[in-house]
Simulated scan of single mutants.
Amino acid sequence: MQLSLVIPLLNEAESLNELHGWIAEVMQSNRFSYEIIFVDDGSTDASWDIIQSLSKTDTNVKGIRFLKNFGKSQALNAGFHAAQGDVIITMDADLQDNPEEIPELYQLVTKEGFDIISGWKKKRYDSVLAKNLPSKLFNWAARRTSGLKLHDFNCGLKAYRNDVVKAIDVSGDMHRYIPVLAKNAGYDKIGEKVVKHQARKYGKTKFGMSRFIVGFLDLATIWFISKFGKAPMHLFGALGVVMFFIGFAFALYLGVDKLFINKTGRLITSRPQFYISLTAMIIGTQLFLAGFLGEILIRNRKNDARYTIIDQI
């Protein structure tokens, strides 16, 4: 199979029929063998009923339904596990991503040898204050932190080689950073393509200020994982040793001063250096233990299920 389209969605009943028709037209005109995997992330409208109806009239349509809303990252992860195509295309279900971009994305992966092609919505039709300015700030921070020179990390329209999506684990809210996860896994041929962006036709955006804040927290998380995820002792152990050394140096100074220099002076416990020494050594010990426990957890962790599927087509 040439293509798998993985489409996560939440309450997009109004757009599904139109999106399916548009995709089918593009696929058939280019004679692709394909599958469309709709992942219903706990919709409360008629989205799943429509997916079931589409699957009865089009054998290329498949569906995965979550018990409740687990998040876009979990939806993508489930879709990646189910995808069988040589190239996997992800896109949103709100009609803001243009299916006519798919043939060129496919060619860039198969002919040009890219591991990932990420869409770039250079011209956007979103609210400037609500999405455009926060997105620009977010993408700037992501570029500086990850080293990937992508303009639009959060664009839902992306193309992947099959082995790339099978090698990465998308959890939490890490869907924004799939290119970074892939780079950390050794897939570093990552390109970018300007894609058409369209104004939302139905419903309302799921984006809010909370997602913007969470995005930056996830950015800090993925930076830490990239640098120290396999060896947390390298960070916490090093900081612990430094803090303990600072505390020990103050303690040594106080001991030498009391024994040989200022024998009749005030008590050690009445000097501020004593408390600096004590605090630094305690913090150093705690940091070292945190690194040690982190190493133990990494070596004994299990892959627990992060979502529950209640129906599948």
Rank of each mutant, 00 (worst) to 15 (best):
D92L: 08
I7H: 11
G208V: 08
I225V: 11
R271H: 11
L219I: 03
L5K: 13
F228H: 02
N262T: 07
T308P: 07
F244M: 11
Y275H: 14
D92H: 11
N30Y: 05
Q286F: 10
N77V: 03
L129V: 12
I276L: 12
L105E: 08
G208M: 06
M243K: 14
P232E: 00
N98I: 06
Q273G: 09
L137R: 14
I102Y: 05
R299Q: 09
A141K: 07
R301H: 10
F236T: 03
S47W: 05
S277W: 02
D218K: 00
I178T: 08
L137N: 09
D97L: 10
K111F: 12
G42A: 04
S53Q: 14
R176M: 03
V39C: 05
L148W: 02
I37Y: 06
F80W: 01
P232T: 00
R211D: 07
F260I: 12
T285I: 07
P272C: 00
G186Y: 00
L10N: 07
L5D: 06
S118W: 00
L150F: 01
W223H: 08
E35Q: 15
F248R: 15
I117S: 01
M91W: 07
L9S: 11
F66R: 13
K263P: 12
L67D: 15
I213D: 01
I23K: 07
K166I: 02
M27C: 11
G186A: 01
A167E: 01
D163C: 09
E295G: 07
E25T: 15
D40W: 05
D152I: 01
H81C: 03
G215M: 01
I64S: 02
W223D: 05
A167K: 07
S33D: 13
N77I: 02
Y160S: 03
V109L: 05
T285P: 03
L254T: 13
S270I: 09
V61Y: 07
N300H: 11
I313D: 03
L289T: 13
M27L: 12
L67M: 15
F138C: 08
D169R: 05
L252T: 15
T59A: 15
A141C: 06
